[in-house]
Design a binder for these strands. Structure first.
Length: 403
RNA sequence: GUGGGAUUAGCUCAGUUGGUUAGAGCACUGGUUUGUGGUGCCGGGGGUCACGGGUUCGAGCCCCGCAUCCCACCCCA
């Protein structure tokens, strides 16, 4: 038997119902916020991710499905969604056109990681990207949108917030931090030593308790923001307060992708194990110019659909549509024709085998049909059809023309 | 990539110190004497015990390998 590749799952039946329900709910909300759907290719030039996500990130340095295609192009399956959307935005010259452009997307992402609960090699994200709005109110809108989507799905969460600063305050802070860490380099873990060289800010996010203790005395970016960043962060907090969205400031929150600046946020769940981040995002004002576009402010987020799946509270499934069956073999053809007509407007399932009434009622129950419609000898004689409403338990007999 | 645990029917799981033909519940399917369901009763099908080796008179059970899943690290959605 050939089975699916490690970390790559089929989505069907109950899972598919939940998956679709989430996409539909999130789509509606994104549209309410003025976003439009965008679809970009699953395969992109490798250079796109190296330049956007950053070569120092684990995603690019060891997790990409990368290969050379038959045209000798260095390509890879997308490990995240933002890079492709930004590429499309620039390629379509929307950066030069100016104005505001808001997109949402959903689809498969690929990362070659060791699978675990909530961590797959092929997984699905729902994300949005907003271009051309530098106001921090847009950042707030992003967070409100995630909160709306999660609430609509009945999902509980904690929201963590941080500011990563901008070109004015981040570089001096970075130097500051490097100096601090260099002084205690002999006490920190191996990973942190590596991080100082590749991406020093990420040491703050280290899970090692010894390191965490040491970093408690480290300078905090939140206390060293320039006035612009600080004002924006204050406004953001106020807007969230005004709209009753609870948050906690996590000065160690560092997004794993290199392109983020200023607002960074993460929604976590305490109910799904160690892979607890269910949504994450932030501002990335410099990414468009990194990818050769005209400088354009941007902010976005992504949600991991598989991680949300078991948290989604599905609405109660209601009886729907028709079930049709015959009690005599001679009636099967008539059932078939009536069902064909009915299917133009309603969900209709047919049982092709003649059965007694009891079994048809059981069958109708099984497919969760609202109406059980049966044709037997009596009905054939009178050219009628017997219908029972399984919800209200009422019955009627209609002529086949009326049906 | 590192460390640990698990794997028996479609699903959830029993299976004694290694000993006849591997079980249960649910699900599926048929019947319940020919017109009333979701909730009665009776029956039926379905297992290379993940896979590959080894030890043994004999392995679901012990040993080795391997695959997958789970947990933690790591990473991140």
């Amino acid at each position: 038997m050939i089975s699916s590749l490690r970390g790559m799952n089929d989505i069907l039946e109950e899972d598919y119902e939940r998956f679709t329900y989430f996409i539909n709910t999130a789509t509606k909300i994104a549209q309410n916020y003025g976003f439009h759907f965008i679809q970009t290719p699953l395969l992109e030039e490798t250079a796109l991710f190296k330049r956007s996500v950053g070569e120092s990130s684990d995603i690019v340095s060891k997790e990409m499905y990368q290969f050379i295609d038959k045209g000798e192009n260095d390509v890879c399956l997308r490990p995240e969604g933002t890079a492709g959307v930004v590429r499309a935005f620039i390629q379509k010259k929307l950066d030069k056109a100016g104005g505001i452009h808001r997109f949402f997307y959903h689809g498969a992402m690929f990362r070659y990681e060791r699978p675990q609960k909530g961590r797959l090699r092929q997984f699905h994200q729902f994300g949005v990207e907003s271009f051309g709005v530098d106001s921090v109110y847009e950042d707030a809108s992003m967070i409100m949108m995630v909160a709306d989507i999660l609430s609509a799905c009945g999902i509980g969460y904690r929201l963590q917030l941080n500011s990563l600063g901008d070109l004015n305050c981040m570089p001096p802070y970075r130097e500051n931090l490097i100096n601090f860490v260099k002084n205690i380099e002999d006490k920190i873990c191996e990973d942190c030593v590596r991080r100082v060289a590749t991406n020093p800010i990420r040491v703050l996010d280290c899970k090692n308790p010894t390191c965490q203790e040491l970093y408690e005395k480290a300078p905090k970016l939140i206390n060293n923001l320039c006035s612009g960043c600080k004002d924006d962060f204050d406004i953001l907090k106020k807007v969230l307060d005004d709209n009753s969205i609870a948050y906690e400031i996590n000065t160690n929150l560092v997004r794993g992708l290199d392109y983020y600046s200023k607002t960074a946020f993460e929604f976590v769940s305490d109910e799904i194990g160690s892979q607890s981040a269910i949504a994450g995002g932030g501002r990335y004002d410099r990414l468009i110019e990194f990818l050769d576009g005209r400088p354009t402010p941007a902010v976005g987020f992504a949600m991991g659909i598989e991680r949300l799946m078991e948290l989604i509270q599905m609405p109660e499934s209601k009886r729907e549509g028709y079930y049709m069956g015959a009690m005599d073999d001679e009636a099967v053809d008539l059932v078939m024709s009536l069902a064909h007509k009915k299917r133009k407007t309603d969900k209709t399932t047919i049982d092709y085998k003649a059965k007694n009434l009891k079994n048809h009622l059981k069958g109708a129950d099984k497919v969760n049909a609202r109406f059980c419609c049966v044709i037997g000898t009596n009905e054939m004689e009178n050219q009628t059809i017997w219908i029972k409403d399984l919800e209200n338990k009422t019955e009627q007999t209609l002529s086949i023309e009326e049906f």
